[in-house]
Design a protein around this nucleic acid. Structure first.
Lengths: 129, 129
DNA sequence: CATCTAATTTGACATCCATCTATTGATGGA
DNA sequence: TCCATCAATAGATGGATGTCAAATTAGATG
């Protein structure tokens, strides 16, 4: 799961500066978009939620399949997508596989939506172009 | 743009509790996923970034088209998607249309990725099932 | 009213993606 | 070694989505 060559992280240096910060380059935008794409599915969101809120910090896949209206392979697929986005990481222990969230990743995303103190509404110059 | 019946907000009560919080219901997950879907495109991300970082707090569409490798109708389409997700709002003034970010929306997203103090790693009960 | 420009909508098309069934890989017990 | 179970992969398919060109709407101006 955390095997280096098995699944490269497509979003290595994505995300950091807030969305209201300096202009996003094409590359950063693409990487960031990848993370959000991973979060853009209801099932994946619920999977992430279950894993993140599970006591012990990790969840067995066997606890996830059957809890959704989709088949086990589909759950597996979604876990893979979350993993490729760097949001979770998995580890096999005997028969079962356990997933946990990548804390730093979630923490970083949080900062993305920070906004500056004020949008200076007095500066509303209509046709200032 | 902010015309009530023109474009209903599909994510009215989406998002609030952190992803690590109480279990996400199907409906909340679907609504939240919608917001992330809106953020899952590089062009949309750059548009949002430009609007959010523009001085005066708003940006004329005329400043956005031509700044991308996509056509004007496509930019318009993406702005509509961001609008439907409740991330931006637009207003026509004379010939031009101006967009601004919905601050509270971005602020709320920030809280989503908050994590509890510690995942209690000692509680790693392998096959507690 | 005619016309020009800004922005959006429409319709078409190619690609991507979530889902399933069937199969394969991995682990552990009889 | 054989089999049962958990998890992931492979391949197929229907629906969603990003894109564009062309048409349309909305204001401003002559």
């Amino acid at each position: 799961m955390s095997n280096p060559q098995e699944l490269e992280d497509v979003t290595a240096q994505a995300c950091c500066a807030p969305l209201s910060g300096p202009v996003l380059g094409e590359r950063e935008a693409a990487e960031l978009a990848g993370v959000f794409k991973a979060l853009s599915d209801p099932v994946r969101l619920r999977l992430l939620n279950l894993i993140a809120s599970h006591e012990g910090g990790e969840t067995c896949v066997c606890e996830l399949t059957g809890r959704f209206e989709v088949s086990a392979p589909t759950v597996s697929h979604h876990l893979k997508v979350l993993r490729r986005a760097g949001l979770i990481d998995g580890e096999r222990r005997g028969t079962w596989v356990y997933y946990r969230v990548v804390r730093e990743r979630l923490t970083r995303l949080s900062g993305l939506f920070a906004l500056p103190a004020s949008p200076r509404p007095e500066a509303r110059s209509p046709s200032s172009r």
